[in-house]
Design a protein around this nucleic acid. Structure first.
Length: 515
RNA sequence: GGCCUGGUGGCCAAGUGGUAAGGCAGAGCUCUGCAAAAGCUCCAUUCGCCGGUUCGAAUCCGGCCCAGGCCUCCA
């Protein structure tokens, strides 16, 4: 078995073989930085993050680039109302970085800005003109779609296909364009707007069009041919179609190995838009749901399926997710019963190779398959990989995880004193949650993985200030129960519950957690 | 007009030729002082409709109905 992904270019599930063995080069279309990202962007970028994490899990090195479109009409428009266009862009970029971190989206290798790549863009426009793929009208350079025979092949929007219903806007500049689908490569800036000199006689100054930015930045950063080009489904046409037209007209060969297009998130059929006022920002989202609940929610639906969003839907998914986190917590609690030395956390003695025919698995797999639960873990890992290999099938991975957790409970992880086995199961669970973008590793129990996560900002320590107080109340409650003073013990439980402390009685005494 | 998705139990959602994953909700039981948690068991002869191909179809083909997206900036 090997990874297969749905490739928009071929409209089929293709075996995933990057150009350079073991290395994957990915370019993702980022935001136009005029406003903070919203929940729809969050889904898209969380998907790309999981894809990247899975590739890394499978042993690939991932070179990921994402861009900021920092020169755009919307930015200019906003700049008029507030500060300069640069401030608008800077603010949106800062918000984007903050939001991504809040969602635990791993940092990309590079974040490129369109305005930092003006020269290569000008150069590309020049080349397109030289090769007869573009023409100049009043200082504006337009791409001549009819000069590129494969135009429309990626998206299926052929030039012959009707544009009848596409509203009258196309007719607007029919006199300037050779074909309605011709698009801007370079255009003069309006007075007072940022402008760049090109040194060209017919188009001496101005700014780049949207599509040329991505063509130029991606090849500068990743080369003339790279593996994956992404962006959400809406980018397919016209953006990606136009990128293909630009880049392939110049390089003369298929430019990108795999085009991948995640579907949108929608508010139950209602389009999210500023005018309706139903845009949900990431900080907004994280007010009502934890980041890991959101990540799990995203993982329960395949990335090429429209995802309906609603607080009730997230809540239902979170209810199920609790079972997973509870398993992790119980394992943590159990493991903390003994000293690190006594845990006997297994050490990997060998690792599976990535040779052809072998099942590619993480290096540490052997340490995940130690002890009493090894068979359960092995079955889980196999299902996890099978699911993810089939076009990043996160829903199958989450289903496998539910079964695994159920089996662990059934196998008695709450009673076992085989700490080596418990540690191994703990790591197996946490390691795979990590692939889905959910980071739960306890520093003491899994330092290697914890080191790769975002700082946990207090994390497990948050409860500490209250711990002593809660423990004393629980002691009092235990005494009351022993002397059958249930009125008192229930009162203590009620008080703690009101304060958000969930109590769970186990054969080994009460366990608690903060809600 | 063109292009493209999708319609699976009360809800969410996998499955693309071999006899319906998983989660939520619901029901019963075990455990428990009572709860909670956990465990066990049950919960779609059926996959929008009608035809066809096949030993066999939710899965392939044809037709139809329905919902949605894109073709204009958009993750």
């Amino acid at each position: 078995m090997a990874l297969r992904v749905y490739n928009t270019r071929t409209r089929s599930l293709d075996p995933f073989t990057p150009q350079t063995e073991g290395v994957v080069r990915i370019y993702t279309c980022g935001l136009t930085v005029y406003a903070p990202m919203h929940i729809g962007h969050a889904r898209t970028y969380c998907f790309w993050d999981v894809f990247r994490r899975y590739l890394e899990y499978r042993g690939y090195h991932v070179m990921s680039v994402i861009n900021y479109t920092d020169i755009d009409d919307r930015i200019m428009k906003k700049a008029d109302e507030t500060h300069g266009w640069l401030d608008v862009a800077e603010n949106a970029i800062a918000a984007f970085r903050r939001d991504c971190r809040a969602l635990r989206i791993k940092d990309y290798a590079a974040y490129t800005r369109a305005t930092d790549f003006i020269d290569p863009q000008v150069d590309m426009v020049k080349q397109l003109l030289d090769k007869g793929h573009a023409y100049v009208v009043d200082g504006e350079v337009l791409y001549d779609v009819q000069s590129f025979e494969r135009y429309g092949k990626l998206s299926g929007n052929t030039l012959e296909g009707g544009q009848a219903g596409a509203s009258g806007r196309l007719a607007e500049d029919a006199d300037r364009k050779k074909h309605p689908a011709d698009f801007t490569l370079w255009k003069p800036s309006d007075p007072g707007q940022p402008t760049w000199q090109t040194g060209q006689e017919q188009w001496p100054s101005g700014r780049p069009g949207w599509h040329i930015e991505c063509s130029a930045m991606s090849s500068v950063m990743l080369g003339e041919h790279f593996d994956v080009h992404g962006g959400a489904i809406d980018n397919l046409f016209p953006h990606h179609e136009n990128e293909v037209a630009q880049s392939e007209a110049l390089c003369g060969h298929p430019w990108v190995g795999y085009w991948m297009h995640p579907e949108h998130l929608d508010l139950r059929g209602i389009k999210m838009s500023k005018s309706i006022g139903n845009v949900i920002g990431v900080p907004n989202l994280l007010d009502t749901h934890r980041y890991d609940e959101i990540r799990w929610f995203f993982a329960t639906t395949h990335y090429r399926t429209k995802l309906a969003f609603g607080d009730d839907l997230v809540a239902a998914s979170s209810e199920g997710f609790k079972k997973i986190t509870r398993a992790v917590k119980i394992l943590e609690t159990r493991l903390n019963e003994v000293d690190a030395d006594a845990r006997g956390i297994p050490v990997a003695s060998k690792y599976a190779s990535l040779r052809e025919g072998d099942e590619a698995v993480p290096r540490e797999r052997e340490s995940l398959l130690y002890g009493e639960y090894a068979e359960l873990s092995k079955k889980f890992i196999t299902r996890f990989i099978e699911g993810m290999d089939e076009d990043v099938g996160c829903p199958r991975a989450t289903a496998a995880m539910f079964d695994y957790v159920n089996e662990l409970f059934a196998a008695g992880i709450e009673q076992s004193t085989d700490y080596g086995s418990l540690a191994s199961a703990y790591r197996c669970l946490v390691r795979h949650l990590y692939v889905l973008g959910v980071e739960l590793p306890n520093e003491a129990l899994y330092p290697q993985l914890a080191a790769d996560c975002f700082p946990t900002a207090g994390g497990g320590e948050a409860a500490d200030p209250y711990k002593a107080v809660i423990d004393r109340l629980l002691e009092a409650r235990a005494d009351a129960r022993k002397s059958k003073d249930f009125a008192k013990s229930d009162m203590i439980r009620d008080v703690l519950q009101a304060a958000g402390v969930q109590i769970e009685d186990t054969p080994k005494g009460a366990r608690w957690e903060l809600e």
